[in-house]
Nucleic acid binder design. Structure first.
Lengths: 214, 214
DNA sequence: TCGGTTCCTGACCGTATGGTCAGGAATAGA
DNA sequence: TCTATTCCTGACCATACGGTCAGGAACCGA
């Protein structure tokens, strides 16, 4: 049996347990939905007693809210690559790469978000109306500027954004279907590269942006 | 008070009640998820006593299974436009139109399907492995033939299909988000026309197919 | 050392859920 | 008309759920 190197401080204990709970909650909410996930199941996944969950998060809804908020922050951060780009090939290309990478690394988060929105966003409606709306308007303006500068075709910026979201998140939200159609095998590095390249090629070509496909 | 024109026959009663229950179930499962939907709530929406639901569908899962199967049939039917088309502009254009129309008319069904797949398809895994896989392989072959005939660019047929699914279903599954970003207003006829045109333009252009945009 | 704070959890509670069932009403078929 | 079948439902049941709480253990700061 191993020696205990150092007792955790109160601060460390709180950080560590919150992390354990949030990870377990994200995974469980993604797999079972809000209604299907039980506090007992989340507790089992986290390896903690159920009562301990209620110590850190008073209600199931408060835990869920925190999970959804964290996901939203990840997505907002990923959109930074959008800004400061010289044109659509760089900006949109990097954005597609970033969102595909999130779908690959954090599929559970994407599913929780999708589920939340599908159920009419009972918890994050205010985010949709404020932060997301402002973010969307800002990026639409960037795209419109690129159009005005003749850097891409005059497509509807809003529907272009929707297509980017839909396509990239599809690889997370419908990952199980994709895996099944791949003979039950998870996507390999090569599969992901092919997916990224295909998405970028069709969309960038679709808006009149040339590509050097290596 | 109105006179009862004709008492319903047993057969008619069964048909009508099953329809009521299935409609209520689709709507409720879409809005609340499998776990969040209760038999009592479905019964209230259908306007029937809860015990009557269990008379027609012995368990909640059997009712849910029936709902998902019905949705899958609608989608398979919609794909008929794909076949017999002379080329990608006609075939894919019609397919996009058909799937956008389903997203508009049956958003609840799309959501139930999405939710089912996100939760690792506990009920329709066999459909994914058989019917959907065969369907997908067939359409990939059609697309590959179009490519070989020089009717479109050499894109990866599989990822093109995924993009079609993702984009068209996004307008149903994320309809609430789209509506919120539309100022809380549901999409009008003009909004839907614009969405359809945008999706078709970007994707068809993206695969090297010219379009006469009226 | 010691009082205060934080962390922890087994046992418990009220409620809501999926599902059952007995018994009755309505229709079908002969 | 008469019997069999189908349809219907209020009342009920066992279970599982989210959440509470008392009481103790561990750490902190002075």
């Amino acid at each position: 049996m191993r020696a205990n190197p150092r007792p955790l401080s109160k601060r460390e204990i709180r950080q560590e347990n919150e992390r354990l709970i949030l990870e377990a909650a994200e995974k469980t909410f993604a797999e079972a939905g809000f209604g299907g996930a039980t506090m007992q199941l989340i507790a089992d996944v986290a390896g903690l007693p159920k009562a301990n969950l209620h110590y850190y998060f008073p209600t199931k809804e408060s835990l869920y809210r925190r999970v959804v908020q964290d996901i939203f922050q990840v997505w907002l951060q990923a959109a930074d690559v959008f800004d400061g780009a010289d044109g659509p090939e760089e900006g949109l290309g990097a954005y597609i790469d970033a969102k595909m990478e999130i779908s690959r690394r954090h599929p559970a988060g994407s599913k929780v978000w999708a589920s939340e929105v599908m159920h009419r966003a009972p918890v994050i409606q205010d985010y949709l109306e404020t932060t997301l709306k402002e973010w969307t308007n800002g990026r639409m303006a960037v795209i419109q500027r690129w159009i005005d500068e003749g850097k891409m075709d005059a497509v509807n910026p809003r529907h272009l954004l929707y297509m980017l979201w839909a396509t990239t998140q599809h690889y997370a939200d419908f990952g199980h279907q994709i895996e099944t159609l791949n003979g039950g095998e998870p996507y390999s590095d090569a599969d992901w590269a092919e997916a990224k390249a295909s998405v970028k090629h069709i969309i960038l070509t679709g808006i009149g942006v040339g590509q050097d496909n290596a």
